[in-house]
Simulated scan of single mutants.
Amino acid sequence: MITAERPTGAPALALPWTAPTIRHGRESLQRAGDRLWRVLDERGSIRGHLRVVADPLGIRYRAERLQTSTGLFLLVGEFWDADDAVAALRF
């Protein structure tokens, strides 16, 4: 088995993720984690979450809802466009 090792004491590479650009002004994003944003409507109510996922073909945007009874995120859909992911949380 081959394993990659980094030199002792070398910091792990961490690039900060910027908020995805939403072209439609109906919702706004609020950072909730490293690659996770809360999707807020005009009143400030949480519609769901937008998670950025690295894919071999590019960046994907995952629309998720928190199921309060279990504390787990439920996948609504995965999209190539952040606006499409946010639109899926409107219903």
Rank of each mutant, 00 (worst) to 15 (best):
M1L: 09
M1E: 09
T3N: 10
A4E: 11
A4F: 14
R6K: 15
P7G: 13
P7I: 11
T8V: 14
T8P: 07
G9T: 04
G9L: 07
A10T: 13
P11F: 03
L13K: 12
A14V: 14
P16L: 10
P16F: 03
W17G: 05
T18K: 12
A19K: 08
A19Y: 01
P20A: 06
I22W: 00
I22F: 01
R23M: 10
R23A: 14
H24L: 11
H24S: 13
G25V: 11
E27W: 08
L29W: 01
Q30W: 06
Q30Y: 06
R31V: 10
R31I: 07
A32M: 04
A32P: 02
A32G: 01
D34I: 09
D34H: 10
R35H: 11
V39P: 00
V39R: 00
L40C: 07
D41F: 03
E42H: 09
R43T: 10
R43Y: 04
R43E: 07
R43F: 06
G44F: 02
G44C: 04
S45E: 08
I46Q: 06
I46T: 13
R47L: 15
G48C: 05
G48F: 04
H49R: 05
H49C: 05
R51S: 11
R51V: 10
R51G: 04
V52D: 05
V53Y: 07
V53G: 03
D55S: 08
D55E: 11
D55P: 03
P56E: 08
L57E: 06
G58W: 01
I59M: 10
R60M: 10
A63H: 00
A63I: 03
R65S: 07
Q67S: 09
T68R: 15
T68F: 10
T68Y: 09
T68Q: 11
S69Q: 12
L72N: 12
F73V: 06
F73S: 08
L74P: 00
L75M: 13
V76S: 06
E78K: 14
E78P: 05
W80H: 08
D81A: 09
D81E: 11
D81M: 06
A82P: 13
D83F: 00
D84A: 14
D84C: 05
A85P: 00
A85K: 00
A85T: 00
A85F: 00
A88W: 00
L89A: 01
F91C: 07
